[in-house]
Design a protein around this nucleic acid. Structure first.
Length: 239
DNA sequence: TTCCGGTAGG
DNA sequence: CCTACAGGAA
């Protein structure tokens, strides 16, 4: 039993103890039980359409901003079919206040058309999912997670920041193709409740482990966090 | 690698 | 005022 937990896994260019992963997951889920953010797309009655469309709206856009426009968007576009049958121009106009509308509108429409052509079916494998229009590394993982219920990381800048501070930084510049972050995040979200642990990491990144002015002393993970110990040491040295 | 963009928060 | 944001494509 103990041997299992002390097993070391090679993750990208680093080694991580399996026990560290377990501790991270456990402390985080405890924290999340009390501190979870609430969003309409996280409701129990949210469909996979709601979840995937939300991820498209959330690209390079704060969750709090999306939350504001979400009811309006869902009210107008209640399903893939409605979206597929609306002109790009109109979609663009609705998306305008969110920004990036001129790029997002054609992508969202193209994806909706494709999904409708397939009668609401998504491809099964990651390889085939990535062939969908407007679907990159991130949305592909979201589809695996929310449509197929497969453990997959919502690896965005926020999750990357949390993991890098805790476990150590990546080598590559681009998060989306860094093998260390990809495999580490996948290990972390592979547990009993992949959606929960994904949301928990994102919430920690938004509420505590913020990019500027993180609140390390309120962090449930500080005792094992590299960043906390490093910044603590440098603070002491400065005094 | 670069660009897209309106918005909320510092 | 400036920064950062649940990324993807050219």
């Amino acid at each position: 039993m103990k041997c299992l937990l002390n097993k070391r896994s090679k993750v990208g260019h680093r080694f991580v103890l399996d026990r560290e992963i377990a501790i991270f997951q456990k402390k985080l889920s405890h924290w999340w039980r009390v501190n979870a953010r609430e969003f309409p797309w996280r409701n129990d009655n949210a469909t996979s359409y709601h979840l995937i469309v939300s991820e498209l709206l959330l690209q390079r856009t704060r969750a709090e901003t999306v939350e504001l426009y979400w009811p309006k968007f869902i009210n107008i576009f209640s399903d893939w079919d409605t979206l597929a049958n609306t002109s790009e121009k109109k979609i663009c106009k609705i998306l305008q206040p969110l920004g990036l509308s001129r790029q997002r509108a054609p992508r969202i429409k193209a994806l909706a058309v494709e999904i409708c052509t397939e009668k609401g079916r998504f491809p099964q494998t990651q390889e085939d999912i990535l062939l969908l229009p407007g679907v990159g590394q991130y949305i592909a993982n979201a589809i695996l997670l929310f449509v197929h219920d497969v453990p997959a990381p919502l690896l965005d800048v926020n999750m990357a920041r949390v993991l890098e501070r805790y476990f150590g930084s990546r080598k590559l510049v681009d998060i989306r193709f860094d093998p260390y972050l990809q495999s580490l995040s996948k290990m972390i979200v592979t547990n009993n409740d992949p959606r929960m642990i994904n949301w928990a990491i994102l919430d920690l990144g938004a509420l505590v482990c913020k990019s500027a002015n993180p609140i390390c002393n309120q962090c449930p993970l500080k005792s094992n966090c590299r960043h906390f110990h490093r910044s603590g040491r440098s603070l002491r040295q400065r005094k």
